[in-house]
Nucleic acid binder design. Structure first.
Lengths: 255, 255
DNA sequence: ACAAAAGTGTTTTTAATACACCCATGA
DNA sequence: TCATGGGTGTATTAAAAACACTTTTGT
């Protein structure tokens, strides 16, 4: 669990349910890297020294708040974005997930409550960094951290990210979620790199193009890349309506 | 959320966390049907009349109980079974999921507390009905109900079962979980029927045999069916060790 | 003219599908 | 001997994988 920096302060003012929280693993893709949006947390140790570390965006739910709604709220408070791809993926309820002194102290400091047991529901969000960076300021000392360069985090947040990545990989295999991480216009190579980075594998370029262009829901635009020192690539867009119509209800099984 | 019949009574005695519960969708397979284990719930309406309906086995967690542990406890209290396949699959946190008068009244009656908001973590369990019936008594007025003949249930338990079935179907496609629902010795036809019933489709017998016998982890026993009025089928068993060694780390993607 | 990434086809291999008959047993 | 479900093989089709060169642009 946890509480978003500024949301935490709000939490102590407004009414919260201190037993249940929501945490968001916000994935973004830029400069050919998968990143996670983390928040700087400041806390004071027993010697009065101020420390910083990072945590997932999250918050306690309010007494009558739907979990999905809480996740959307956290995302919107942080980034200003709404209508973002957001999926519940797992609950973390280990009784010792809040046991380090710094975590207990930080909760006391931000909520005013002595809290030692919180069950958190984890969501992952997929956002397009470049567009959202352009239009919305990232507030609350949030930072994009490369997925494989994540420092020690608050609570069990590293584990939550690991599991979130697993779920993202699973989703990427079975649904067209990759587009959520790309701008509306993208090149096939960008898409392929996204798959390679998230699934951590190499894909054959010709087979990849054959596969994705074989679907009817990837539509080529008239526009090409400009100013690149090589043959410019066409831009494509994802046509969700066509996907919805054509989606094959897969029946095979592998075990 | 909910509380298992007898566990509910216990809950009011022992210390509970009344905000968080665990519910178990316990699947079983017998007479070629997929079934769910449900518990009879009795409640008294305002006119003092006694009513019965059905609910999922579930309970509040205790203050320091791991969610997984709570699910295992519920399962064991009910069936006496342990080391059962048990997977968390989803959290149900809608603020109105406990809003019907009968549900509110029943909670008051069984816990002594006025409870109107509970976030529940749902697990599904896979058990082999015949073996467990033989060795363990099912307590607490529990009944196996055919998956497509489920009457109106307490709380949002019907929705939880629907979602649990979806997750079971998904698991069945990707992992060898079907064996959890069968006796240690089973015939290929039993296995095929299990797939057909759970995935709700017809499978070609020759192709099915080819596929499952192509794996190395389905091993034929010397034993055959006896007393059947037709050619007796060989029994097979699932070799989990071989599966663990041979499991192909599937890399393909379909979207 | 060079560097750099875009874009393109064919062959091979593998997996999925479709399909029909004989076999072993109990009654 | 009959009814019942068990068990088997092949041909076709579809999808995945392997693989190398030409094109377009900026510098």
């Amino acid at each position: 669990m946890s509480t978003a920096g500024s949301s935490a302060e709000k939490s102590s003012a407004r009414s919260i349910n201190p037993h249940i929280s929501v945490d968001c693993v916000i994935f973004g893709f830029s400069t050919n890297q998968l990143k996670v949006l983390l928040i700087e947390r400041a806390y004071t140790d027993e010697s009065g020294n101020r420390h910083r570390d990072l945590k997932l965006p999250g918050d306690f739910i309010t007494p009558d708040e739907h979990l999905d709604r809480a996740a959307a709220r956290i995302l919107e408070e942080l980034t200003g974005l709404h209508d973002i791809y957001l999926r519940q993926f797992e609950v973390f309820g280990h009784p010792n997930r809040i046991s380090r002194k710094i975590d207990l102290d930080w909760l006391l400091e931000t909520t005013g409550l002595q809290i030692h047991r919180v069950v958190t529901t984890a969501y992952y969000a997929l956002i397009n960094i470049s567009e959202s960076n352009r239009d919305f300021a990232i507030k609350n000392n949030a930072r994009w951290i490369h997925i494989s360069r994540i420092p020690p985090l608050a609570f069990d947040h590293l584990e939550i990210i690991r599991r979130g990545l697993k779920h993202l990989q699973e989703a990427l295999r079975n649904e067209p979620v990759g587009f959520e991480l790309l701008p509306a216009k993208f090149t096939i190579r960008q898409l392929q790199t996204l798959y390679e980075v998230i699934l951590d594998c190499k894909l054959d370029n010709r087979n990849f193009r054959k596969k994705v262009l074989g679907t009817r829901y990837l539509v080529q635009l008239d526009e090409k890349q400009a100013g690149v020192p090589h043959k410019p690539a066409y831009f494509y867009r994802f046509d969700r309506n066509t996907y919805m119509r054509d989606r094959k209800d897969y029946i095979g099984f592998n075990f």
